[in-house]
Design a protein around this nucleic acid. Sequence first.
DNA 1: AAGATAAATGGACTATAGTCCGTTTATGTG
DNA 2: CACATAAACGGACTATAGTCCATTTATCTT
Lengths: 186, 186
Amino acid sequence: MGEPPRERADAARNRLKVLAAAAKLFREKGVDGVSMDAVAAEAGVGKGTLFRRFGDKSGLAVALLDERERELQAGILSGPPPLGPGAPAAERLAAFTDAYLDYVLGHLDLVRMSETASPGARYRIGAYRFWRRHVAILLAELRPGCDADPLAHAVLASLAAEQVTALVAEYGEERARKAVHSLVPG
Amino acid sequence: MGEPPRERADAARNRLKVLAAAAKLFREKGVDGVSMDAVAAEAGVGKGTLFRRFGDKSGLAVALLDERERELQAGILSGPPPLGPGAPAAERLAAFTDAYLDYVLGHLDLVRMSETASPGARYRIGAYRFWRRHVAILLAELRPGCDADPLAHAVLASLAAEQVTALVAEYGEERARKAVHSLVPG
DNA sequence: AAGATAAATGGACTATAGTCCGTTTATGTG
DNA sequence: CACATAAACGGACTATAGTCCATTTATCTT
């Protein structure tokens, strides 16, 4: 196994330029009102560079969400209960549901962009594996003998950004949260 | 309230031409390998006509699914139990889940196209209201006092084509079906 | 420091969804 | 049947995601 090849200086510089430009434009015009061309132009970078760096639109969204995502993951792995380890499975699952809804609702457009830019994008994101694993472990504890992995998948369906957007738009955040909680086993 | 203005003969003719052309192309090249331009060309019709008639790509998919959708709706409204009226709510819900999965899995690409062509398309389709209403009524019976409408919304999330596609691809149809069943209350 | 190498660059190019509007045509009326 | 009207038509046009590759540049080696 060779060394991990270091990232070239210009590449790193351009990544930062793009992230800054995207954050600025999204703040100013809203996530849905900004094209990839506009991001490239604002960053002073060619389109090819933008796509080489982030793969596609959802990749850019994922990069921008990275920090928030890490916070949530850290809270799950080593934060205080009930989100972190130490609480009973049912409580941890409820806490995760709440925390995840906070995350999604706090960046609705970005998360939606990260999940829907290309078909199946949601399930390919690295973090999705993490959420699903976490939920599966709790479900296995909560319902011994159940087929936890696909069940976790199904549970997470109700937390997809597109789904949450529609739910909140139609019933408001209060009822939406309660509905998701009453669906999640526990 | 005036008469419903009759559809012009050329319009009706073109609708049929487009539906036939789309069905043919989808059969030959797969739903994902056919552009709207190709459909218009095969139908011998202008692009404007195609979009005027069906609104967008998901509208075309909905039109093609119409018959199957009606069958399922008819089975729910007046077919034999447990899908139709007469069985206990829990059984009807399970039967609906199965029947809906049959429908989705039987036309996976088309249903996905109908749901994902534009953001939120799924929830705007007329039939979606029907499914949600049906599930909500059963849930209200099954869990008196619950907030049935948003809960039905959340339940249906696990039946979205995109979701089902990923679930089946990763775990196979057998486990996917069981997972959805064990999530749905009852 | 000069040269070799592989990585990064950027913008022209392609593919495709969806819009617009001047022209054509079906249909009801006198 | 001629005519008026409103509906339907179609294809050029726009917007945008994503690809390709000839050129440039950072980094490593000697």
